[in-house]
Simulated assay, not measured.
Amino acid sequence: MATATAAPMRRDRKQAPPRRRASPYPLWFHMPAGVFFLVLFIVPTAASFYFSLTRWTLFDVEFIGLDNFVQFFREPALVQGFTNTFIYAFITSATKVVLGLLLAILLTSQIIARGFLRSVVFFPVLVSTIGVGVTFTVLLDPFDGMVNQLLALVGIEGPGWLTDPNLALLSVAFVDVWKGVGLATLIYIAGIVAIPQEYFEAAEVDGASSWHKFRSIILPLARPATVTVVILSLIGGLRSFDLIWAMTGGGPGFTSDVIASVIYKQYQAGFFGLSTAGNVVLFLVVAAIMVPLSYWLNRKGSES
């Protein structure tokens, strides 16, 4: 009996098709992206970490260890720069999330010229950041700017938007929101349009109000869009430089300086190793904030 049973098992074993080796062919399509990532990110990042430990010029490199980092953290404007960076990032990202969601709800509803209004909202994203900064610097001029002239027509004395230490950073943040809210709106529009219409139809049958549809359908199901907007806005806010430099140059005084502008001022002064160390610190700060935040937001989304 044992022999009779073993024979069919051997026959079945022989008939089993051999396993095919996985072909490396699909991996070839990743090679161009991998090369670009290596050349444009990995190599410059590694070089930055190395040069942050040196005193360097175009013609000379001297290894000095952690002296650049010690000197960087002694910068008198650094504390102000860190504070302004976090304030700026929080204000701009929170405002873009709220305004982007409200505009997306409006632009996905049945309104006249919906396509045109979407183009108008998104248009500032396409404009050069430096061009936007120069334009708003002229518009917000405390004496000849159009904004204060319009306020004067209704009897309001306009403040020094970019010259008042208490308003300079907030004024630049407002311009940043104006320029970047179009991208947040576009992401939210994509998220809302992807929600199945059956949910809204069922809510209408149940007699749900617009507020209940927003709270129970749009907010939870548009969460992936919210996570994307929060991450992109926070990264942009923490790395902000070009708009602030174009509008205030970090002034008046150091009141609108951010980490990136402090780094650039060191570079202007010829302290290349010191500015490279500042860039490494900025990279580590952004990574230390965004990696756990991204993990937490995505984990909360998967749990819900």
Score class of each variant (00 low, 15 high):
Phe51Cys: 00
Asn84Arg: 06
Leu38Ser: 10
Phe29Gly: 01
Gly253Leu: 06
Ile218Thr: 14
Gln110Pro: 03
Pro196Gln: 07
Gly236Met: 06
Leu151Thr: 06
Val258Thr: 11
His30Trp: 13
Ala4Met: 11
Gly155Arg: 10
Leu293His: 10
Lys179Gln: 14
Arg114Trp: 12
Ser216Lys: 14
Val125Ser: 07
Phe283Asn: 01
Ser256Pro: 07
Arg239Cys: 05
Thr95His: 03
Ala202Arg: 10
Gly160Phe: 15
Thr135Met: 14
His212Glu: 14
Ser210Cys: 00
Phe116Pro: 01
Gly158Leu: 08
His212Asn: 07
Ile195Trp: 09
Phe271His: 15
Ile289His: 07
Thr5Asp: 09
Ala89His: 12
Gln80Met: 04
His212Cys: 00
Leu234Val: 12
Ser52Gln: 06
Leu274Val: 05
Ile235Met: 11
Leu40Phe: 15
Lys213Ala: 09
Ser209Asn: 08
Tyr295Met: 05
Ile231Asn: 01
Lys265Arg: 15
Glu303Trp: 09
Thr45Met: 10
Ser93Asn: 07
Val285Leu: 14
Val181Asn: 04
Lys179Thr: 06
Ser216Phe: 15
Ile289Thr: 12
Ala287Pro: 03
Trp245Lys: 00
Pro44Lys: 02
Phe283Gln: 01
Tyr188Asp: 00
Ala202Tyr: 15
Pro292Val: 06
Asp176Gly: 09
Leu58Ser: 09
Glu62Lys: 13
Leu140Tyr: 14
Phe272Ser: 00
Ala203Val: 00
Gly115Val: 02
Leu234Lys: 08
Gln268Met: 11
Ser256Leu: 05
Asn166His: 15
Pro76Met: 05
Ala33Ser: 15
Leu297Glu: 08
Glu62Trp: 14
Asp60Ser: 12
Ser275Val: 04
